[in-house]
Design a protein around this nucleic acid. Structure first.
Lengths: 154, 154
DNA sequence: TTTATTGCAAATTATTTGCACATCA
DNA sequence: TGATGTGCAAATAATTTGCAATAAA
């Protein structure tokens, strides 16, 4: 998805492509993958320090409405954003020890989702929250060697 | 688990059973199931209005350390607490439209957890975050009839 | 008595909002 | 030009913390 295309989509809704919006998109592309809100703010500052944090939040919401970016909730540490990758949004898992986020296959929960919808009518959206657990490194080395990306539960 | 037992466990660690701690436990028992932090504060106020909100937060942490209560992260709306029910912590699913939380079978993700640990060594903790999606009512009636428990995404 | 715990108030942190000004099409 | 969008600063909201006073054991 090019900046061009986003501009067109914005115009189609009577909205505009602006400096701050370009900066946020550039920051997301540069960073790649899922980016915490705070990291987006930081990354945008690298691209263009004149962009205000409030504009970053507003832009993320605008681009979400537009379908250009998607968000995902992490149990600990808030919300992460990533550029929409079509129907390819994979499942995420966050380590409760180090805070790191791993990608899991997009179809991981398909069977479960089927069971759940049959059983209770609840339609799962598997990519919208990260699963929780302990990553291999933290499970293996205990709490000693892993890098702490986040602090504490909760 | 009786108040008695919790008191004993606390003493075993050089800690004490106090009025505020009794109030929090009573509130959790009265309310039943998973209770949002804000709801715990409210419920405790009903039990004993003299208990300060800060003490509720501190007590929830203390009781978590003790293993008497457990918490669970909701994608939208923060943290919920519930009394530990042995190994029986079921899986939760939160509707992104109305915010309601449903209980799903505890073993729902067992197969997935096995796959994941084999594949990447990540050990899932299925009850620690609520899955996300749309409940039957909200999926059926669209956005018109459901009670909004929470406000907005993200 | 002694020391863990509490209430209070202030500090933090993260996000949102009102508004006058800037800017995109 | 004329609406949309932005920077700023203040408002919210939720949780945490320092500290003197209180209360368990």
């Amino acid at each position: 998805m090019l900046l061009q295309d986003v501009a067109v989509r914005l115009r189609a809704r009577g909205e505009r492509m602006t400096g701050p919006r370009r900066a946020v998109l550039t920051a997301l592309v540069r960073h790649g993958g899922h980016v915490l809100a705070a990291e987006v703010v930081e990354a945008v500052a690298d691209v263009d320090p004149s962009v205000h944090r409030a504009s970053v939040y507003r832009t993320l919401e605008t681009l979400s409405d537009l379908g250009v970016v998607q968000h995902l909730h992490l149990g600990h540490g808030g919300t992460a954003y990533h550029l929409s990758d079509g129907d390819h949004h994979h499942v995420h898992a966050q380590c409760q020890v180090c805070g790191g986020v791993e990608d899991l296959p997009a179809d991981l929960l398909d069977t479960v989702a089927e069971q759940v919808v049959l059983r209770s009518g609840f339609v799962l959206d598997p990519g919208h929250v990260a699963l929780s657990g302990t990553c291999r490194a933290c499970a293996t080395h205990g709490s000693s060697s892993a890098t702490r990306h986040h602090t504490r539960e909760p």
